[in-house]
C-alpha cells in the first residue's frame, strides 16, 4: 500500500506492506538506522521516535498507521556540524556508554523538554521511564537532560 509521511521535515511517499512496522520503514526503507531495535515488543524504548508530537515506540506502530504523520528521528535533531543541546549535553555529561539506547533516550528527552523546560528530577525520571539503559545507571542521563534544559533556556541554540 502507498503511504506518505513527513520524516525530519522531508515529505516521503512509500509503498509498504501491511505488516511493515514504522521501525522497519525508518530503518530499512529510509535507511535512518539511528533508530534502534532492542526488543521489538515495546519494552525497551530503543526505537523511540516522535510521531505527531507524541513519543512512540516505533516497533509497535504499523507503517500504515503513520500515513500522513509527521515523524522526527534522531537524524532530524542535529548532525555533527550542529548538535542539538541534548546531544551536546549527553556528550559533555558522559551519559553515553555503549550508546545503543541513546537515540531513543534523546528523543524521549526532547519530547520532555518541549513540554517542560524546567523539569524536576521526578519529571525527568517519569519522562524517560520507558527507555531502558543497561550501561549507565541513568545518573548521567538525568544530569544531561538537566544540562540540556539549562542550555536551551540560556538560549545558546535555536532550532530546538
Amino acid at each position: 500500500m502507498k503511504i506518505s509521511l513527513t520524516v525530519n521535515g522531508e515529505k516521503r511517499a512509500l509503498d509498504v506492506k501491511p505488516e511493515t512496522r514504522l521501525l522497519d520503514l525508518i530503518r530499512d526503507d529510509l535507511g535512518l538506522t539511528g533508530t534502534k531495535e532492542g526488543c521489538g515488543k515495546g519494552e525497551c524504548g530503543a526505537c523511540t521516535v516522535i510521531m505527531n508530537n507524541k513519543v512512540v515506540a516505533s516497533c509497535l506502530v504499523l507503517a500504515a498507521q503513520a500515513d500522513g504523520a509527521e515523524i522526527k528521528t534522531i537524524e532530524g535533531l542535529g548532525g555533527k556540524d550542529k548538535l542539538h543541546p541534548l546531544q551536546q549535553a549527553f556528550i559533555e555529561k558522559g551519559a553515553v556508554q555503549c550508546g545503543f539506547c541513546i537515540p531513543g533516550m534523546i528523543m524521549s528527552s526532547k519530547k520532555l523538554l518541549d513540554e517542560n523546560i524546567n523539569p524536576s528530577e521526578e519529571d525527568i525520571k517519569r519522562g524517560l521511564s520507558g527507555n531502558i539503559c543497561r550501561c549507565t545507571g541513568y545518573v548521567k542521563i538525568v544530569d544531561a537532560v538537566k544540562e540540556a534544559a539549562h542550555k536551551i533556556k540560556s538560549g545558546g541554540e535555536e532550532n530546538v
Partner: peptide
C-alpha cells in the same frame, strides 16, 4: 576527556 565515540552515538551515525 570526552568520549571519542560519543558524537557518533548521539547523532545516530554510529554503525552497530
Amino acid at each position: 576527556v570526552l568520549k571519542v565515540d560519543a558524537q557518533d552515538k548521539v547523532t545516530g551515525e554510529a554503525q552497530y
